[in-house]
């Protein structure tokens, strides 16, 4: 019999998950299904670094620097590390760049596939849990130095707020209420965010806060790139609100970055935070 028809596995009802479907029918396409020789591979693959995210009333901002490093070498100056996951969410990646970008691609298809098959969008928690599963599948590679640690954030259509989720290499996820950072420069960025964040930020001010935090990360972490004024390479910034996720245009970020750098000419350590009780006797 002439069997040129679509294979039975495609026609069988069942899973709405694209990664489950791949695992059954084309496991070689999954990023985490590759076996590695023993030993650490951390030194041979470019690593992406710092991502920051900040919520504001009615949405959130996620921003990432543009540098990928391989040991002491700058592997790429203009890498993209913040991606749209679907219409209402974004994902930022830190860790092994090649694997992380592939994981994001799989995650994007996973969300879109569910939406098309089921005819409805996954809840924000559902999306966050699917990403957990993808990270967990990568644990073997993470233990050989090829870890991927993403950050996921989106607009929750049910509660009308922006929400941020952080992950660890085992796929454990935790929700962050106001701001979060990942990557090698994350400690410095988090310190800056602690002093700059307030819960009534406007969307534009939230973008300014993110750029300040990335500047501080680049200031103290060699693997994080600052604004590249000569080549006009600036952080990638996504703003997510009820209207969906939008990437800010290069020109808009360029002028904001110029403001940040201009202010640092006068005060290299950045904006001064108010100090309660300053000047009073202890």
């Amino acid at each position: 019999m002439n069997d040129a028809r679509i294979p039975g596995a495609f026609l069988r009802p069942g899973t709405s998950s694209f990664s489950d479907f791949l695992a059954e029918n084309a496991p070689d396409l999954l990023p985490a299904r590759r076996s590695l020789p023993a030993g650490s591979a951390a030194e041979i693959a470019p690593h992406g670094t710092t991502i920051v995210a900040v919520t504001f009333p009615g949405g959130l901002v996620m921003a990432g620097d543009r540098r990928a490093t391989m040991g002491n070498v700058i592997a790429q100056r203009d890498i993209q590390k913040v991606f749209p996951a679907d219409e209402y969410s974004v994902v930022g990646i830190a860790g092994t760049a090649g694997l992380a970008v592939e994981m994001v691609r799989l995650f994007q298809v996973e969300l879109e596939h569910y939406e098309k098959i089921e005819g409805s969008i996954l809840s924000l928690d559902g999306k966050a849990n699917r990403l957990s599963a993808l990270i967990r599948a990568n644990l073997g590679m993470a233990m050989q130095g090829l870890a991927v640690v993403p950050m996921f954030a989106g607009y929750d259509l049910d509660s009308g707020t922006g929400r941020i989720f952080g992950y660890d290499v085992t796929g454990g996820r935790h929700e962050e209420a106001s701001f979060f950072t990942v990557g090698s420069g994350s400690l410095f960025a988090r310190g800056a965010l602690k002093k700059l964040y307030r819960d009534d930020l406007s969307p534009d001010d939230a973008v300014r806060v993110c750029l300040q935090a990335l500047y501080d990360a680049a200031d103290d972490d060699s693997a994080t790139g600052g604004p590249d004024l000569t080549r006009r390479i600036f952080p990638i910034v996504w703003v997510v609100t009820a209207d969906g996720a939008v990437q800010l245009a290069d020109a808009a970020i360029g002028s904001l970055a110029d403001q940040v750098v201009g202010a640092r000419m006068d005060r290299p350590d950045g904006p001064l935070a108010a100090l309660p009780g300053a000047g009073q006797e202890a």
């Binding site: 028809r5 679509i6 479907f21 084309a26 396409l29 799989l106 298809v109 098959i117």
Partner: peptide, 30 residues
């Protein structure tokens, strides 16, 4: 559902631009 799976799998394995109506129409016709 088979069409969505075929399209998503081809787009993931190659590129989004490589998913064409002709390819899917052929698969359905067969």
């Amino acid at each position: 559902i088979a069409g969505v799976r075929l399209a998503d799998m081809r787009g993931y394995a190659y590129d989004r631009r490589d998913v064409t109506g002709r390819g899917l129409a052929n698969a359905y016709a067969q």
